[in-house]
């Protein structure tokens, strides 16, 4: 936990510094008439102090022996694959359209945990895409992009 707290403390400290500087640029106004950056300056200032406190507390603690690795031994590659696929989907969905892009997405997502029966993967992807399209687009009037191929 020690290393994790040190790392996260530093991360939030850097976030707080960035927000603090931007708040100053936005203008904090006067106490009688606070400006746009007043509240965020205060919030980021306290966040910075607390992040520093977390970092220092973690640094002086003796819990080193209890530290557990963040990723090793876990199926984190699956997570990275899913994240990558989701990111690509977000970009290409307006171009390819909902039906086509969602079918591809669902095929990959089902395939991640079920690699033996490919026909089942295709069938589940096809059905989930089609049903979600009819429920959300036709029934609930959500507006999905048609994309290049009009799908």
């Amino acid at each position: 936990m020690k290393t994790l707290d040190q790392a996260s403390g530093l991360f939030w400290l850097s976030v707080s510094i960035a927000v603090f500087i931007e708040s100053l640029r936005l203008g904090i106004g006067k106490v009688q008439n606070p400006g746009m950056g007043f509240m965020t300056l205060g919030a980021s200032g306290i966040l910075g102090i607390l992040s520093l406190a977390l970092f220092i507390r973690a640094s002086v603690s003796r819990e080193e022996g209890k530290a557990r690795p963040l990723f090793s031994g876990r199926l984190w590659k699956r997570v990275l694959l899913v994240l990558f696929v989701l990111s690509v989907y977000s970009i290409v969905m307006p171009m390819l359209g909902y039906l086509l892009s969602t079918f591809i997405l669902m095929t990959i997502l089902f395939w991640v945990l079920e690699r033996k029966r490919i026909w089942l993967v295709f069938m589940a992807s096809f059905l989930s895409t089609l049903i979600s399209y009819f429920v959300f687009s036709k029934w609930l009037n959500c507006q999905f992009p048609d994309g290049l191929f009009g799908l």
């Binding site: 980021s44 966040l47 977390l54």
Partner: peptide, 8 residues
């Protein structure tokens, strides 16, 4: 800290 992040 998370509450402060939420405010920001």
């Amino acid at each position: 800290m998370m509450a402060l992040v939420g405010i920001i």
